[in-house]
């Protein structure tokens, strides 16, 4: 079936708008779209979106992560193998994290990373044919916010929820950060690490994030206010 931008699409639909735009100038075809002979076909069920100029993609529901280059992810160290750590990202293959890709690490000065540690890292290689590779430094060799996450609480959620809470227009984190202090790291692989002062606050934060998945912006604000009042002890 022929579809246009903003429509709900199913695999097998094609969009003539993209092929027409492609004849005039360069078009960036994002996830959920595939070029086949002279048509651009949809491969995933969701909503066809466009960003000017000429970037098209499909917004779809997903729980399983497939690694892509340049995304911040949260992994669990599962093995130390020679000069690399094996890190589980929840994808089909474990990722490799070199011990030299930490800030200030040298051959003699190894970073202190144990099996079972949770790391916040960036994907350097994300390809279907190669194993994913992670780094805990940026291109200047600084760690920034990357590295081992100590203490706190890790939980899983859908990849759409991560995209939703990281969207600058989403009021969830803005509302919550005014209520009580906490630390949060959201990995694009569907994992969230949180750390608050008390266990009560941590649980409240986790429930607020998971509860926000299917709510609208207004409902999120109301829910945050509600949770904050329960936490403060105003409501039994």
């Amino acid at each position: 079936m022929k579809v246009s931008v903003g429509d709900v699409v199913l695999p097998g639909d094609y969009c003539e708008e993209i092929s027409a735009a492609g004849e005039k100038s360069k078009v960036i075809v994002g996830p959920g779209l595939q070029k086949e002979s002279n048509h651009v076909y949809v491969t995933k069920a969701g909503v066809l979106k466009k960003k000017n100029p000429n970037t098209y993609w499909v917004d779809y529901y997903q729980k399983r992560y497939t690694p892509a280059r340049g995304e911040n992810v949260i992994g669990i160290v599962i093995q130390k193998a020679g000069d690399i750590y094996r890190v589980d990202l929840g994808s089909s293959m474990s990722a490799a994290l070199s011990y030299l890709s930490f800030e200030g690490a040298t051959k003699k000065n190894r970073p202190n990373v144990q099996i079972g540690d949770v790391v916040y890292a960036k994907t350097l290689v994300g390809s279907k044919d190669m194993e994913p590779e992670l780094v805990c430094v940026d291109s200047y060799g600084k760690k920034g916010r990357l590295g081992v996450l100590t203490d706190g609480f890790l939980f899983k959620c859908s990849i759409n929820l991560i995209r939703k809470i990281l969207n600058p227009s989403c009021p969830l984190l803005d509302s919550l950060k005014n209520e009580w202090p906490f630390e949060l790291a959201a990995g694009m692989n569907g994992r969230i690490w949180i750390k608050a002062k008390t266990m009560r606050e941590t649980i409240a934060l986790g429930n607020a994030i998971l509860g926000a998945e299917y709510l609208s912006d207004e409902e999120i604000k109301a829910m945050c206010a509600n949770i904050a009042s329960i936490l403060a002890g105003h409501v039994a």
Binding site: P11, G12, T43, K44, A45, Y60, Y61, Q62, K63
Partner: peptide, 11 residues
């Protein structure tokens, strides 16, 4: 399969 987000040629 639609729900899982796997790439498909058609439904």
């Amino acid at each position: 399969l639609l729900n899982s987000g796997l790439a498909m040629r058609y439904v």
